[in-house]
Amino acid sequence: MKRNPLVPIVVAAIIAVMLFAGIHSARKNRAARSPSVSGQVHGKDAPDFELQSLEGKNIKLSDFRGKAVLLNFWATWCGPCKIEMPWFVELQKEYGPQGFQIVGVAMDDSSTEDITKFVREMGINYPVLLGKEEVGQSYGGVNALPTSFFIDRDGKLVAREFGLQSRSVFVDHIKEALNQGQPVQAQK
């Protein structure tokens, strides 16, 4: 039986198209779902907001201008959020003196008392604010928790991370945020 020489070429072309489609789709999903979508947010202004802290004070994001900020959206019912918190406590101690500030935003329906109890149990050493849906929306919608935004000293977004990440990912973004923008002392 004679073989048609076109068959292997057609098969190879089909495989190439499917591989391309698969890889393209995977990249798109990865970008949409998680890890670093820093390319999409890098350099944009972090939307300012004013939220109430657990102590009842009104706090604005812009109050931290001049500091590198890790804005962490979390909830008491979120298991992966609990894993990050001890890292955040350490990172706040380690990088705080360099002008780094973590700000937690609790996207909870729980009472302030319950959130306060949780925060105490976790030994959190950074301000926790009571989140509002519109604040999440201004950051593109916080549909999965934890979600963290890294903001430089000038209030510009450096990176965004969805879901639990390794500690080293946070460290890299914190360093990046600290190295960008003007520290408070330099501002006049």
Binding site: I15, A21, G22, I23, S25, A26, N29, A32, R33, S34
Partner: peptide
Amino acid sequence: AAAALGQDA
């Protein structure tokens, strides 16, 4: 392999 890479998140 292509199908696995392209799975929807």
